[in-house]
């Protein structure tokens, strides 16, 4: 069972918010003593999602939660946007696929960097991406 210990909602509207969001995330990660490598993985993964959100959905909201399961602590981030949605999630999760001009590593790459990854999308309503990384 995963318990949520604290919640912190950050709005992401502009490019500069990416750096702000990273810093907020870094603070939380340091507080729960997440190792440097896992911090870097989590921040890089969320960076990819935030970038997607800005590019395709004009921004959204990132919810940073400290969670615990047994003796493990971790961070769960839920990104919610009201963008156009993703037509074919399995295609979007494939390496090298992109509708924009990027490398197409964003979604599959960030999935590789975290312990749990979930994506839900509805055309015309928006997309929700969940990332979870344990401290160890």
């Amino acid at each position: 069972m995963i318990l949520s210990l604290s919640k912190d909602s950050v709005s992401i509207q502009r490019e500069q918010d990416v750096v702000l969001f990273r810093n907020r995330l870094k603070e939380v990660a340091v507080k729960i003593k997440m190792g440097l490598l896992n911090q870097t993985r989590l921040i890089t993964a969320s960076s990819e999602i935030v970038r997607n959100m800005l590019r395709y959905a004009d921004g959204g909201i990132g919810l940073i939660e400290v969670v615990s399961r047994g003796r493990d602590n971790g961070i769960r981030i839920t990104f919610t946007d009201q963008g156009p949605g993703i037509a074919d999630i399995s295609l979007a999760m494939r390496d090298g696929y992109s509708t924009g001009k990027s490398l197409g590593l964003g979604l599959p790459g960030s999935k590789r960097l975290v312990d749990e990854f979930d994506i839900k999308s509805k055309m015309g309503e928006g997309t929700i991406v969940m990332l979870l990384k344990w401290t160890r």
């Binding site: 440097l36 490598l37 911090q39 870097t40 993985r41 890089t44 990819e48 390496d95 490398l103 590593l105 599959p108 790459g109 960030s110 590789r112 960097l113």
Partner: peptide, 14 residues
């Protein structure tokens, strides 16, 4: 390049 950055880039597929 920092070690953590190098590992992350490889895992990202870059």
């Amino acid at each position: 390049m920092q070690p953590a950055v190098a590992i992350t880039l490889i895992e990202l597929g870059l």
